[in-house]
Design a protein around this nucleic acid. Structure first.
Length: 542
DNA sequence: GGTCCGTTGGGCGC
DNA sequence: GCGCCCAACGGACC
């Protein structure tokens, strides 16, 4: 290196996108041929991913960071884990390490914490003459590209799956999947620059920072040393294990080619779907790589049958992009509205009740409806539930039975699901509560009969609600209908070992349909009034 | 204003 | 396992 060559010190900032494969921002930073390279992750207790975060989720994140660190070490590098507010911690490191180039994957959904954070970092980096390299690799296409194409000529952006599919099919060829960097791509860092023993990734949830400015007794989840001891995560975190899982789940090419989501089971003990969603939401897997892997698997299939979007596996990837696009569009007009009722243009305002006891019973799996409770307990136990199970419990909490706000349900899912995803979670809660995108509120999931035909023996309930494991199949979905002798023999006193149903499903679901109709009518009225006011305003002005 | 559609409802009869 | 009705939503398109 000649004396006059300025030193290139690059930093790649991992946030989501916790992977080395198909990581275009990481690649572009390495392409600057840096003399020093710092892959960093910032643990911020106030980040939305940590603020309300179950022990299983915290543990999953730690596994992702540990894996990233060990993969980087194999390439002669390592992960530098910092702690605090990134907008303060990172500029300090720019200074200390002499950073000249910063790369990161863009967050396009407009999630408020990320949006504010990135705006601030970009400002500070520019002020400090740090060159920025960003890339969109969270979705199959950049959301801004969908927006551009989908609103050309003053069109409204696609807001149904059908119209989104048309938009998707009109997009140009997808970007190629990038290989992971190799040892040669990394600079030789002198030992003193590796900061051995410093900035090490957390090993257990208790190593994670607390939210700042929130008293400990008001933090919803306290990460104790033994919190994960009795829990059994559905999947383990990290890019390495994610790549194995991808290969494994797509090896039966006929299964991949004929996959139809509604035909999969939500009462099977092991996931009947790919269960790759946690890897996509944390970015351990690249969506484009999954898409390509699906193409490859299907090309090897020997059956004639081919499932199609929206129910096929490709279709599941499309749903993901569509949901991200909707979150992006909603937040573009009203920042941070996506997981809220207020100000969300895609959300109808339904006057939900606010009953903490009902909400708590739902969260704990103590509603007295065995299948609902089993599903909610699987969520707590494993951090994952089948999509249709999510439908049923979401319907139950909101328009179906308990009439509680979907915002509360969404918060709980965000905290407990390993695959919690800002865009997808918001979309599905809007959908299930009939607040947006889906409006057929007279189609209501039965908390009793919906799964009877798929799991007549109630094995799923027996696993997750062990109090009921000896109840005969005939009554396993509705123990309150069993003669007392039958329950006694099974060792269950309703109201003691297991609760009586907290509502009368037939009664409240009927009632709630009427409330839904009233809410819709009220919304129509409000809209008509708004229209006539704005029309008369216009008239007055002219 | 009419018609058709919307990833995965429930219940009945056949 | 399929077709049909239940009572009836909004939105796109004509």
């Amino acid at each position: 290196m000649s004396k006059n060559t300025p030193t290139v010190v690059a930093m790649h900032w991992f946030r989501k996108g916790l992977r080395l494969h198909d990581n275009p921002a990481l690649k572009s930073a390495l392409e600057q041929s840096p003399q020093k390279f710092f892959p960093v992750y910032v643990l911020d207790g106030n980040a939305y991913q940590l603020l309300r975060c179950s022990p299983l989720r915290a543990n999953f994140m730690i596994e992702c960071l540990q894996d990233l660190d060990s993969s980087l070490k194999k390439l002669g590098s390592r992960l530098y884990v910092l702690e605090g507010d990134p907008t303060i911690v990172l500029p300090a490191k720019f200074e200390e390490w002499g950073v000249t180039h910063l790369s990161f994957e863009e967050d396009e959904t407009g999630e408020p914490y990320a949006a504010k954070r990135d705006e601030m970092i970009v400002q500070k980096a520019q002020a400090m003459n740090v060159n920025l390299f960003t890339a969109c690799s969270e979705t199959l296409y950049p959301l801004k590209d969908y927006m551009k194409k989908g609103t050309a000529g003053g069109k409204a952006i696609a807001n149904s799956m059908g119209s989104f599919q048309k938009l998707f099919n009109s997009m140009p060829a997808m970007k190629k999947v990038l290989p992971a960097p190799t040892k040669d791509d990394f600079p030789d860092m002198k030992e003193e620059n590796l900061y051995d023993g410093e900035f090490v990734p957390p090993k257990r949830p208790t190593d994670l920072p607390w939210p700042r400015g929130i008293p400990k007794d008001q933090v919803e989840y306290v990460w104790g040393a033994n919190d994960c001891r009795n829990l059994t995560p559905a999947v383990r975190g990290g890019e390495s294990i994610a790549r194995k899982a991808l290969k494994e789940s797509l090896k039966d090419s006929n299964w991949v080619a004929t996959f139809e989501k509604p035909q999969t089971s939500c009462t099977s003990i092991k996931p009947s779907t790919t269960a790759l969603s946690p890897y996509l939401s944390w970015g351990c897997l690249s969506p484009r790589e999954v898409w390509t892997a699906l193409d490859e698997a299907i090309s090897k299939a020997t059956t004639n049958g081919r499932s199609k979007p929206p129910v096929s596996l490709h279709g599941q990837m499309l749903w993901r992009d569509f949901n991200n696009l909707m979150a992006h569009d909603a937040n573009r007009e009203s920042p941070g509205c996506w997981n809220k009722i207020e100000g969300n243009k895609y959300c109808r305002n339904v006057p939900w009740d606010d009953d903490p006891q009902l909400l708590e019973a739902w969260k704990k799996g103590q509603t007295g409806f065995p299948w609902i409770d089993a599903t909610m307990r699987q969520l707590r136990q494993e951090g994952w539930i089948h999509h249709l199970g999510r439908h049923a419990v979401a319907c139950f909490l909101t328009r179906g039975d308990l009439w509680q706000s979907w915002e509360e349900g969404a918060k709980h899912f965000e905290a407990e699901l390993l695959d919690a995803d800002y865009a997808l979670n918001g979309f599905n809660w809007l959908w299930l509560s009939c607040s947006g995108f889906f409006y057929q509120y007279f189609r209501c999931y039965s908390p009793i009969t919906f799964q009877m035909k798929n799991d007549p023996n109630g094995n799923y309930i027996r696993k997750f609600v062990p109090e009921l494991r000896n109840v005969p199949s005939k009554y396993i979905y509705c123990p309150w209908e069993a003669p007392s002798g039958v329950l006694e023999k099974a060792g269950v006193n309703l109201g003691k070992e297991y609760p009586k149903p907290i509502v009368d499903h037939l009664e409240v679901s009927k009632e709630n349909m009427n409330r839904m109709k009233q809410a819709y009518d009220a919304q129509k009225k409000r809209e008509a009034e708004r229209k006539s006011t704005s029309a008369s305003k216009k008239q007055r002005m002219s």
